[in-house]
Amino acid sequence: MEYTIDELMAVTMARLIKDGDVVFHGVASPLPMVAARLAKLTHAPNSIYFAGTGGGMNPEPPFMATMTQDAVLFEGAEAILTVDYIFNLAARGEMDVMFFSGGQIDKYGNLNNTLIGSIDDIKVKLPGGAGGANLSCEVNKFIIWTTRHRKRVSSSGREIYTLVEKVDFITSTGFYEGGDSRERLGIHGGGPYKTVTELGVFGFDEETKIMKLETIHPDVTVDDIIENTMFKPIIPDDVEVTAPPTEDELEILREKVDPTGVRKVEFPKDELKRKFEL
């Protein structure tokens, strides 16, 4: 049996959700959407899932949508809540898991969804961080994901990294300047928990709060990680390969959660050619 990178990422992200967790994701979040549903149908049946700002709670959609306000995300929902209600949960410290991505992600897990350049000289206006600026300082933990870890070359020949030394703009706060800088300022919430990319999985070093490589995907080497990451991640001696999905997980993912393959829209086409043997 074979599986693909989108399936590996969806399963890896789902496994970070514990049974009973309150889980939320924002806009433009196909992988988190799929991961949250998959967790509920496998190891975390008692997790409470808020499907984006549309406010559908514990929906049972027959398939997933690329737009997070799509009516399919209300199918079978136990409640439809207003956006302010969901944010109240987070402010009270009752949101366990949130998923964030970023146009730029730095070594401390700070995220930039706002602009490339500077406030006074905006080169690219990104769509915006939506709830991230506030929620990253409220939720118990957040999971960072990106499908664009691999560096690429711009039309002017410049190398573009997603995992950068320093973000141009902090939209969502990770471990800020590292060490205890986040805690010292009295920022609530536990900060970033893991970073899941199309190349591997990182945690954060307990002391320095710098991203620390945990596992690499089956066709990836530690050198690939180093080459595609602008900052120097902490790399322990014993880096394992990311655990593969089980047959059960794959079947539920493919048939019940995401039969139309919405999870794939996040990936550059070449990435989807990556296949692994189970």
Binding site: A91, T114, I119, G129, A133, N134, S136, C137, E138, F169, I170, T171, S172, T173, Y176, R182, L185, G186, I187, H188
Partner: peptide, 8 residues
């Protein structure tokens, strides 16, 4: 709640 660390 404090979010002074965000450039927002």
């Amino acid at each position: 709640l404090n979010f002074e660390t965000s450039d927002i």
